[in-house]
Amino acid sequence: MHVGLQHYLAVSMILFCLGLLGVILRRNLLVIYMSLELMLNAANLALVSFSRFNDKLDGQVLVFFIITVAAAEVAVGLALIVALFRKRQSAHVEDLTSMKL
């Protein structure tokens, strides 16, 4: 079977769902963060393949921005995790329930 857009999208989809599963199931904050990165990458893959099969470069530009934002996000997020860890001595979501009143 010849590889087309459909195949790329299927890979992207599965990767996205893997990331989602990780976010909801894993309890280590760092791993949750990595799963988030997986989801972002899945979106990137979908965009690049759309760009390729529609013969337009705009999708790639968008991916470029997403990578940039993701880098910024990782920096800030990890800083937050470090600050949180200093205070609570834990990177485990079940120990971080201060959002409950």
């Binding site: 990595m34 990137n44 990578i67 993701a70």
Partner: peptide, 23 residues
């Protein structure tokens, strides 16, 4: 494979080079 050579490079540089190192 999708002819996005530049992005492939950026992907490795930024993610593998920076983000993962940060992790």
């Amino acid at each position: 494979l999708l002819h996005a050579f530049f992005l492939a490079a950026v992907q490795i540089l930024v993610y593998a080079g920076a983000v993962i190192v940060l992790f």
